[in-house]
Design a protein around this nucleic acid. Structure first.
Length: 953
DNA sequence: GAGTTTGAAACT
DNA sequence: CAGTTTCAAACTC
């Protein structure tokens, strides 16, 4: 696929990113075109990613011009070196034996670097930095954006066009178009398709407006100049990328978001939405305002975006694609309305296309090297958050495109704020709740990104994002000295402490409550916010201003350390960061009558252990989450106002039995199965709950589903270890709940839709896959599991067919749900994010690499884990559920035996397992959706799976 | 705001 | 796996 020629410039440095060669071309090309991956994975991301990249590059360039240039190259050229350096710097990670770890670390490092870069950028912005800071908000766009590339010009042109219709259209010179085409050709199908329309449009526009290219030209020139100054060598790569990204955002972020949501499968559907974005362009004022917002968001987002892009190549492509497409559609629409609009749109597209073309090549090249790039995306939770934000935004925003657009930006900014400054978030119209959710999602995303990063070696995603990420990351990397990484160093602590010292500021009892920013306002003094004691850390978000923590390392600056610690914790407890609160959707939801998930369905995965508070105070996690106690709780004298443990158990049993019976009757399962099913059903509730959580918090969902649902009842051991941890996600749920205060019902409703969506996307097959995945996960929760899953690929399993029949109904129901819901960033992103997360560094990458077909696979990572738990339980219940559990228990990540294990397990209890799976599927319809998303993301999963195998081990 | 209580997280 | 310690939030005054 020839990494585009242009790309060669950058790629040349990396000459060999192994994976790059493989996937980069294809995927890179495809990814942009193929909305599937990109869209799925990164829908939310794309916006952020693209723009940030551009901006970041420009900004960064301002701050550390040379660094940026060099870094990308260096990074690309020699990831290994970087990795080595990182390792050295970071720690003792140097252990030669752990090449894999080093890789992951590298990825992380990059990510962290990206974050750091972002931070630096922020600082730079704060500083008088010439162009970036001031200009950004207003004129800056042109300049910074220009640096970014065509995107900027596009934006400018658009803006100007709105104001001065003439310039925009003509602005895009034919030469550019030609270039674009070339690049596009290189890029691949996506580019080509997109480009064509834009070209036409551009031609028309040109005809209409003949030469007023001045504006465009100027913008371009300025951009080029800046590029030259800043990124002499990297111009094509980073700048273009950024430009591409930027344009999309400006033009059609809303549309993109929508697309992201809807397009889980593909972009096509999204196109219609795009027009909205175009419409925005129509209104000069609105566009300008948006610009301001965008710009701000971008600034904050930049770093994150960069990372995101890297991580989620799919996203980038989607963005690009959307932009390209949107123009076409937009142009059409506009043609109807006004020639000016057409011209503008065309020009914008042209520019975008150009940027793409330019970008892609580099990206591709970068992709090859991308393994590195991945890290960028991953970055920290915060980064992920940022990334996630878009997704979440998409989810939330899907409802309101235009509004959301703004809101989304706000969200993004907010998410960014989490990391950097929450203040901006406030400006955003979006509710704090949304922001919180986003933040959580972001975390998930971040993990995804990590995974993607890990996968960077893997082909798929890397191509698109990789380059940008690489560029950014490398730069950031260089710029952001390793010092930060060494949170170990006391200096950092002291610094942070002093910096943060504003202790107890806000804390005030928001306690668990999350700020609009998503900040939990922790007050950690000894843990440096690197343990689960820290709400922020547990939630996967960076500590922010509101926090009164001392010596905090949970900051973007210390992403590396944060990631490392996170991994450590996850290694101990894969579910440590999974949402604590889970909702069972399965059977209740399955039935039409039960459309509403009873509030009781929401429960704490792990359950509380209250002895004195009687579950009537916030000491009780259940109470704190506004959920009732469940059978998983070990509390004494439970008086939880949201639901007593005893009550829950009683109802659960009754419900489960009924459910089992009905299904048994319907499905005609054997009596033996019925018993097992009952067991499963009880567990399923937990699982469902988990699934529910997943919807809210993609990252953990899988875990939730898997472990708790099934396992908790049986053995807390398994479930707990796997599922228990999930605070972050839970927080999301809790946050939602808190916000509404009728958390259960609301959440359930909300969650369910998402889950449904996800299910829809996933499709029945997915569910099956998940089941398999679960099994797999049990063996190897993380990457390995994924690989296994791939093999299993669910559908294949026959039992699945049976399952399908039973579950299919549920699935269908879910499917009935509007795809849009599914598309929403939340569920979608979250799922992916969760997956990434789980798999976290290791597996995630491979997953991403996978292709759509792999969908099931991707979800695997996250879902697999969940399913694993679930299935295991089920299996355990039926036959030898614990076997699976045993496998999983030891060390999910480590174990990760390939397919064999899963199958073996299945074979062990083959009949049982199958039956169990079926049941599970029925019970856990919600899962499929999630997985599907993941799958979509994971479309690359298959590939990723391959990579995962490599990466994982 | 300081001190106490509580239960989760971490450690052994 | 259980018990203990540590930790930070929740709570009280």
């Amino acid at each position: 696929m020839g990494s585009p020629q242009s790309a060669a410039t950058k790629t040349t440095t990396t000459s060999d990113s192994q994976s790059v060669q493989e996937s980069p071309c294809l995927f890179s090309d495809l990814s942009p075109i193929k909305p599937v991956k990109a869209a799925h994975v990164a829908q939310g991301f794309p916006r952020f990613n693209s723009p940030p990249l551009v901006f970041t590059s420009s900004r960064i360039s301002s701050n550390s011009e040379t660094f940026l240039l060099k870094r990308p190259q260096d990074l690309l050229s020699s990831k290994e070196e970087i990795s080595c350096n990182d390792d050295k710097e970071k720690k003792s990670a140097d252990d030669p034996g752990e090449s894999k770890k080093s890789v992951t670390q590298l990825c992380r490092v990059f990510i962290t670097d990206a974050h750091k870069d972002a931070e630096i950028k922020k600082y730079a912005q704060a500083q008088p930095c010439s162009s970036s800071g001031c200009v950004d908000e207003y004129f800056a766009d042109p300049v910074e954006l220009d640096t970014v590339h065509s995107a900027d010009s596009a934006n400018v042109s658009l803006n100007q066009s709105s104001i001065l219709p003439e310039s925009s259209a003509t602005g895009l010179p034919a030469s550019k178009n030609t270039i674009k085409f070339d690049d596009i050709n290189d890029m691949g199908k996506d580019a080509g398709t997109e480009v064509k329309e834009p070209l036409i449009l551009s031609k028309q526009a040109q005809e209409d407006l003949h030469g007023k290219p001045t504006f465009d030209v100027k913008s371009l020139n300025t951009e080029e100049q800046q590029r030259d100054g800043r990124w002499p060598t990297d111009n094509a790569g980073g700048g273009q990328q950024g430009g591409c990204d930027s344009t999309p955002q400006s033009l059609s972020k809303p549309s993109q978001i929508v697309q992201m949501c809807e397009d889980n499968g593909e972009n096509v559907a999204t196109i219609p939405h795009r027009p909205g974005g175009n419409l925005i362009l129509r209104d000069p004022e609105a566009s300008e305002n948006q610009r301001g917002l965008r710009r701000r968001c971008l600034q904050f987002e930049e770093a994150l975006l960069n990372t995101i892009e890297n991580s989620a190549g799919s996203l980038d492509p989607t963005n690009e694609v959307t932009t390209s497409r949107s123009p076409s559609t937009v142009a059409e629409l506009k043609s109807l309305e006004s020639s000016h609009a057409d011209l503008i749109a065309a020009s914008s597209r042209r520019q975008v296309i150009q940027s793409r073309t330019n970008l892609y090549p580099p990206r591709y090249s970068g992709n090859s090297s991308l393994s590195i790039s991945k890290p960028s995306s991953i970055g920290l939770h915060l980064n992920s958050i940022v990334n996630a934000v878009p997704v979440t935004c998409g989810a939330t925003a899907r409802l309101k495109l235009a509004e959301d657009y703004m809101g989304v930006q706000g969200m993004k900014s907010a998410s960014v704020m989490n990391f950097h400054s929450l203040e901006k978030m406030k400006s955003c119209p979006i509710s704090s709740n949304v922001v919180e959710k986003i933040a959580f999602i972001a975390e998930d995303v971040r993990y995804k990104t990590k995974a993607s990063i890990a996968a960077s070696s893997s082909l798929c995603e890397s191509p698109h994002t990789t380059e940008p990420s690489n560029l950014l990351k490398p730069i950031e990397y260089d710029t952001t000295p390793h010092d930060k990484r060494k949170f170990n160093s006391e200096e950092v602590d002291s610094n942070e402490k002093y910096s943060q010292v504003s202790p107890k500021k806000k804390r005030k009892k928001t306690s668990s409550t999350i700020d609009g920013d998503g900040c939990k306002r922790c007050n950690c003094k000894k843990t440096k916010c690197l343990k689960l004691y820290c709400d922020c850390f547990a939630a996967g978000i960076y500590c922010a201003e509101p926090c009164a923590c001392q010596g905090c390392f949970n900051k973007p600056e210390y992403e590396d350390t944060v990631l490392e610690i996170r991994q450590q914790i996850e290694s101990r407890n894969p579910l440590a960061f999974a949402p604590k609160i889970v909702q069972h959707v399965t059977e209740f939801n399955n039935r039409e009558d039960r459309n509403q998930v009873p509030p009781s369905s929401v429960r704490h995965k792990r359950g509380c252990n209250c002895k004195k508070s009687m579950c009537l105070k916030k000491y009780c996690e259940c109470y704190q989450a506004n959920v009732g106690c469940s059978s998983g709780c070990r509390c004494d004298g439970c008086k939880n106002i949201y639901g007593k443990k005893e009550e829950y158990v009683a109802t659960e049993l009754g419900v489960t039995k009924e459910m089992v019976r009905e299904r048994a009757g319907e499905e005609k399962f054997e009596g033996v199965f019925n018993e097992k099913l009952e067991m499963v059903a009880t567990k399923e509730d937990f699982l469902q709950a988990e699934l529910y959580d997943l919807h809210f918090t993609p990252l953990t969902p899988s875990f939730q589903c898997s472990s708790h649902g099934m396992a908790e009842p049986k053995s807390q051991l398994l479930s707990r270890r796997y599922l228990q941890s999930p605070e972050s996600e839970l927080t999301i749920l809790s946050s939602c709940v808190d916000n509404t205060k009728a958390p259960e019902t609301l959440n359930s409703s909300d969650m369910l839709p998402q889950s449904k969506e996800s299910l829809n996307v996933g499709s029945y097959d997915w569910q099956l896959d998940y089941n398999n995945v679960e099994v797999m996960d049990q063996f190897s929760p993380k990457g390995d599991a994924v690989a296994n899953i791939c093999h299993l690929t669910p559908l294949s399993d026959q039992p699945l067919t049976a399952m399908a029949s039973s579950t299919s109904s549920k699935m269908r129901e879910w499917k009935n749900i509007s795809p849009v819901q599914l598309s929403p960033g939340t569920g979608y992103v979250s799922s992916s994010g969760s997956l990434c997360w789980r798999s976290s560094p290791i597996t995630p990458m491979s997953r991403f690499g996978g292709t759509k077909s792999l969908q099931g696979l991707n979800p695997n990572s996250g879902f697999c884990d969940i399913r694993e738990d679930d299935t295991p339980e089920i299996l355990k219940d039926c036959a030898t559920p614990r076997n699976s559990v045993k496998i999983s228990c030891p060390n999910w990540k480590r174990v990760s035996p390939p397919k064999r294990h899963s199958r073996e397990l299945g074979s062990n209890s083959s009949g049982d397992l199958k039956s169990g799976r079926k049941f599970i599927l029925q019970g856990v319809p919600s899962f499929p959706p999630l997985t599907p998303y993941i799958d979509s993301k994971g479309s690359t999963n298959q590939k990723a799976s391959n990579n995962e195998d490599n990466n994982s081990r």
